[in-house]
């Protein structure tokens, strides 16, 4: 069974059309061309589907990097260990 961290990485690859190597812990909103404000909303929808959670608007703004996304999903009960 796929681990949550793999699902998380795959969401970035699928939605933002990134290469496997592009997805790193340094990835952040606005730093790459693909992850812009519009791509951000599609990424949030994908995360909500993949992890069956609802991310509210405050956390959508807070979800501005690869690492902060993991923190927010952890708060929503997603296990990354």
């Amino acid at each position: 069974m796929m681990k949550n961290i793999e699902k998380y990485r795959n969401a970035f690859i699928a939605v933002l059309d990134l290469e496997e190597d592009d997805v790193s812990e340094d990835l952040a909103l606005g730093v790459t061309r693909e992850w812009d404000s519009i791509g951000h909303m599609t990424l949030i929808s994908e995360m909500e589907d993949v992890f069956d959670v609802s991310i509210d608007s405050e956390w959508i703004t807070e979800f501005n990097s690869y690492m902060s996304g993991i923190e927010i999903l952890k708060r929503l009960g997603v296990d990354f260990d």
Partner: peptide, 22 residues
């Protein structure tokens, strides 16, 4: 508008065209 119109309209939308509509 972002919190009460745009974000709810974007729920479940995975295409840029759908976000454009929102």
């Amino acid at each position: 508008l972002r919190d009460y119109i745009f974000v709810p309209l974007c729920k479940g939308k995975k295409k840029r065209s759908e976000i454009y509509f929102a």
